[in-house]
């Protein structure tokens, strides 16, 4: 429903149905486990029903939710006090197959700042300018992080599976 203004107060049932999976994926990739991801999504929707405002259209609304969710995930990572050590079991619990678990494992092994731009670009399909606006960083920084994120994914993959591309 792009183009249609969304007035406050918002409708959580519609929003959870429309954006719940997207936010859950983002939070899963960012936090690396189901429980933290669900908590983050829940917190995001709680802020949505109490703190959101009118939105120009559904894309504006989704961008707001993604921004809030990414901030909540950052706080979660900081509270957890370690960002990199995620267990394989956590990753397997997130994925429905071993192949998917392998790719998710590569993704969540990236530093958080690369992970989120890779996710927003390759999963959500956002372009540099949109990601720049969502994360409040320059377009050049988004491009650099995308490039560096790709390089790191290749490097990690080579180390893990001896060089056959995925």
């Amino acid at each position: 429903m792009p183009g249609k203004t969304i007035k406050f107060p918002p409708d959580p049932e519609r929003a959870v149905e429309a954006y719940g999976n997207s936010l859950y994926r983002l939070c899963s990739v960012m936090t690396g486990n189901k429980e933290d991801a669900q908590d983050a999504v829940q917190e995001c929707f709680l802020r949505y029903i109490t703190k959101a405002h009118d939105f120009k259209d559904s894309e504006h609304e989704k961008a707001w939710l993604i921004k809030v969710a990414s901030n909540i995930c950052r706080d979660t990572l900081r509270k957890r006090k370690h960002q990199s050590f995620l267990s394989l079991d956590d990753i397997r619990n997130l994925a429905v197959s071993e192949d998917n678990a392998q790719i998710l494992g590569l993704l969540v092994s990236l530093d958080e700042k690369y992970r989120i731009v890779i996710h927003l670009h390759y999963v959500e399909g956002y372009q540099t300018e949109e990601i720049s606006s969502m994360l409040d960083i320059s377009r050049a920084a988004v491009k650099k992080r995308l490039q560096r994120g790709r390089e790191m994914l290749r490097e990690i993959y080579k180390k893990e599976v001896n060089g056959d591309g995925f």
Binding site: P12, E13, Y24, Q42, V96, S97, D99, I103, G165, F166
Partner: peptide
């Protein structure tokens, strides 16, 4: 190297109906 495989891998992650219900209950 096929980065297009990232999307289907991540899209396999979905909220269950129970999780959605929990979130909505929290909202209410």
């Amino acid at each position: 190297m096929d980065f297009d495989k990232i999307r289907p891998a991540v899209e396999s992650i979905e909220l269950s109906d129970k999780q959605k219900e929990d979130i909505l209950n929290a909202c209410k």
